[in-house]
């Protein structure tokens, strides 16, 4: 059984078929979406154009995750290419919680969020990497150590003595 999700249906332009890790789920996309991934863009630049779809197996990315990645890129298909904030003040600006990216990522479960950031990193989609990091930043903001450990399922692996030492470092509080 093959589940095909058609997200783009304009004729006469180069189509790409992305196949998820289950080897079944396919996504048909065009350049506007593909080019947001620096990795795929580079890959396709050395590929001959074809009348038919070019098939790209992405056996590292689950169908669910790939669907989310494409949903995100679809939102930006007509936008200017993303320029990540650079320079010394890059860390000072961030999207508001009501920004589309934040709302979209907020709708994902933690696992889906981590998956999508990993996939974004793998495919090098810088807009999505940044958005994911901003979202995780919001999730960490104003949390206690215990809350952070619970949210991110990190086990506190410091001994009580070590933790005390870190807390007493003359930098905090």
């Amino acid at each position: 059984m093959t589940a095909t999700i058609e997200l783009e249906s304009v004729p006469f332009i180069q189509k790409f078929k992305l196949i998820a890790s289950d080897n079944k789920t396919e996504f048909i996309i065009d350049e506007k979406i593909l080019n947001q991934s620096a990795v795929l863009k580079e890959m396709m630049e050395i590929q001959d154009k074809s009348d038919t779809e070019i098939t790209i197996p992405l056996n590292q990315i689950s169908a669910e995750c790939l669907g989310n990645v494409i949903k995100f890129c679809k939102h930006y298909e007509d936008s200017e290419p993303y320029l990540p904030p650079i320079g010394p003040t890059a860390c000072l600006s961030r999207p508001s919680q009501s920004h589309w990216d934040m709302v979209f990522l907020k709708s994902l479960s933690s696992k889906q969020l981590f998956d999508i950031i990993n996939a974004a990193n793998f495919l090098n989609i810088s807009r999505l990497i940044d958005a994911g990091c901003f979202r995780l930043g919001y999730m960490t903001e104003n949390r206690t150590v215990e809350e952070i450990r619970r949210i991110f399922q990190e086990s506190g692996d410091f001994s009580a003595v070590e933790e005390e030492q870190i807390r007493n470092e003359p930098l905090w509080n």
């Binding site: 930043g137 150590v145 952070i148 450990r149 990190e154 933790e163 905090w172």
Partner: peptide
């Protein structure tokens, strides 16, 4: 927040 994160794990 960095302080809290720092204590989360090694």
């Amino acid at each position: 927040d960095v302080f809290s994160s720092m204590l989360a794990c090694r």
